[in-house]
């Protein structure tokens, strides 16, 4: 093993009359040295960012986890990649994601399932697959006031339909405004781009 302890002696004041003198002299000199350090930084340039006038460089925001946002399909950026597996909703520790699905009724047998809120688990459905109604994402809401930005939904999304935004300077005066409709946001961002 290459990890080893290194037991050192704690610096102590020197013993004896001469030692005390030396120590005192060193101590007094250390006060001057301290003034030197702060004096040097006094003349040095500042390191802070004057926030409203300056902002941090975009490069320092790489990897920043803002609130989550939906990712559009490559060919159709206005629609989310989401396949409504509900994994993100289930794994979220704070329950801040709510998803609603539109279920198109299949054309022939009209009563396969009632369009309920949420989604019944796939395994429990006895019907064969083709009879199933085609689902589409109706609503994807995020309550940002609850979110703890743990990224569990993002890492567990099977189709990479979620990612973190780089929405750093977002602040609201009202808690209600922290509820986000991510689907609308996705559509808006596409419109803004085009």
């Amino acid at each position: 093993m290459t990890i080893k302890a290194n037991i050192k002696q704690t610096p102590k004041p020197e013993a004896g009359f001469l030692g005390t003198l030396r120590d005192t002299a060193k101590g007094l000199w250390s006060l001057v040295v301290g003034l030197g350090v702060t004096g040097k930084y006094f003349t040095d340039k500042q390191v802070t960012v004057h926030y409203p006038r300056q902002t941090v460089k975009p490069v320092s925001l790489t990897g920043y986890r803002g609130h989550i946002e939906l990712v559009g399909k490559p060919k159709n950026p206005g629609t989310a990649r989401c396949i409504l597996c509900m994994k993100c909703m289930r794994i979220c520790p704070s329950g801040c994601i709510s998803i609603k699905a539109n279920v198109e009724k299949p054309p022939k047998p009209p009563q396969t399932e009632e369009p309920k809120e949420g989604q019944a688990p796939l395994t429990k459905r006895p019907e064969p697959a083709p009879k199933k109604g085609k689902k589409s994402l109706a609503k994807f809401e995020l309550d940002y006031s609850l979110c703890s930005l743990c990224s569990l939904c993002v890492t567990h999304c099977p189709v990479h339909s979620l990612r973190h935004s780089e929405h750093v300077y977002w602040a609201e005066m009202d808690k209600k405004n922290l509820k986000l409709d991510l689907l609308a946001r996705l559509k808006r961002s596409v419109e803004e781009k085009s």
């Binding site: 702060t38 930084y41 006094f42 040095d44 340039k45 500042q46 390191v47 802070t48 004057h50």
Partner: peptide
């Protein structure tokens, strides 16, 4: 101002 500049920040601004 002195405190600010010693601490490498602008102080009141």
């Amino acid at each position: 101002k002195i405190a600010g500049h010693i601490q490498r920040r602008p102080g009141p601004f």
